[in-house]
Write a protein that binds this DNA or RNA. Sequence first.
RNA 1: CGGGACGUAGCGCAGUCCGGUAGCGCACCUGAAUGGGGUUCAGGGGGUCGCGGGUUCGAAUCCCGCCGUCCCGACCA
Length: 489
Amino acid sequence: MADDKKLTTRAADFSAWYNELVLRAELADYAPVRGCMVIRPNGYGIWERMQRQLDDMFKATGHVNAYFPLLIPQSYLSKEAEHVEGFAPETAVVTHGGGKLLEEPLVLRPTSETIIYSMFAKWVQSYRDLPILINQWANVVRWEMRTRLFLRTLEFLWQEGHTAHATHDEAESETRRMLGVYRTFMEQYMAMPVITGQKTESEKFAGALRTYACEAMMQDNKALQAGTSHNLGQNFAKAFELKFQSAEGTEEFAWNTSWGVSTRMVGGLIMTHSDDKGLVCPPRLAPIEVVIVPIFRSDEDKARVLEAADKLKATLGSFERPEHLRRRIHIDAREGMKPGAKYYEWELRGVPLRMELGPRDLDAGQCVIVRRDTGTKQPIPLVELETALPALLEQMQSELRANALARREANSIRERISYDKFKEVMAGNGGFVYAGWCGDPAVEAQVKEETKATIRCIPDPEFRSAEPPTTCMVTGRPATCEVLWAKAY
RNA sequence: CGGGACGUAGCGCAGUCCGGUAGCGCACCUGAAUGGGGUUCAGGGGGUCGCGGGUUCGAAUCCCGCCGUCCCGACCA
């Protein structure tokens, strides 16, 4: 921080910019334990709004919430071979309780497939007991080597949906449906466009049949995996004896899915929209939509302006209004701080709209509204705020999404390029590269080794090229599919 | 766990080479003025200098050990 008041710029050091923004906007802070963070009210408020929206969407798609315990017998994790291989290296293990060595160590859940499907096995007898459509909001622990605020911490908050079905096809359509829910949420609420698609064998979830993901592009052109949805097949059902009797009387293993998004999305939101002045928060997820900065000199003016501000908040923000008509308003009435200083602070914190309200405005029956993303100022008559505020907020919401989409496409390469050119791109500005792939995992490994880029996904049809690639970018062999390459978080 | 940097007031740092009264900026508290883009003046509070040991009359400073944090790798939502 050369200048004490300004953030390091994105261009100078994206990583430093991100860290400083998170800390100074008071979204999160480092905790005493390495790799752990405290999510402060400004950051938690965003997560809460994400939760509320997603929870509504899960309920609307037929899911119910439940809660399973944090502690899982270590042996459970070992019951599915690929699963234990994938997660064992990063589990935290409890060996003592009440001062005594435990007979069997307990792991802090890195994810809850094992405990949940072991319980499903108790609850399911018949095909009539299916499907089970459960979600839980929880914390999980993964002992990562390198951590970053929101993007990768030892403990993080998430939701994990877990379902059980009678058939493969039903499980598959559930897997796809929830990926679609994530996509809708990310686009409509986070204003963050995503590429959806399937993960390759090497990138899929440990223990899954197939993994699908939403991949977003951050402002440094790196990809962020923002949500995953897994078709688990019968792998866990077999490990935990999750069986049911079919209508035909036969005994069958159930088909499971799991899907999750985490507090990592807060990091994605930050890196998608924010600028060198601080956070830019999409209005729909902003804990505060409008901050009123009162301006006054004399005591008379002060009383008059604050009264007007209170009145605006009491009417436009009244809890008696239906939520979509209720504005989330904060009045910054702090004494001894000049308006300019407040402007900078609320810009750092990402409040979408700022309302400047002073004696001159009141005389004219108006206020001045400033948009956080564009900085544009406009006077608005007080009597029109009721309709003007939601219109401005929605306009900002959709422009943020459109801008993020334009930026992603401007940094995507869809024409066929040579592997040499690809190396240049990845060594330079990076970005998303669509290319043919022969399907050989060794090629993935080689490219990762040489360029640090990985296959983010095999994009869903709507994201694929009009002209499908016929050869592998790396080997020149016939392509089995088109893939999306990028360096990732 | 490998490579690098660092640990001194809430935050950012100087002081360490060359041992001798613990400092600066911001933040914070009090008062007054100020108030439409980071306000000014005056006064004030706050530290076992990461921890442990050693050398010395005397250690933030020198030596040894440990712990922790951040950045770059290998691992990952």
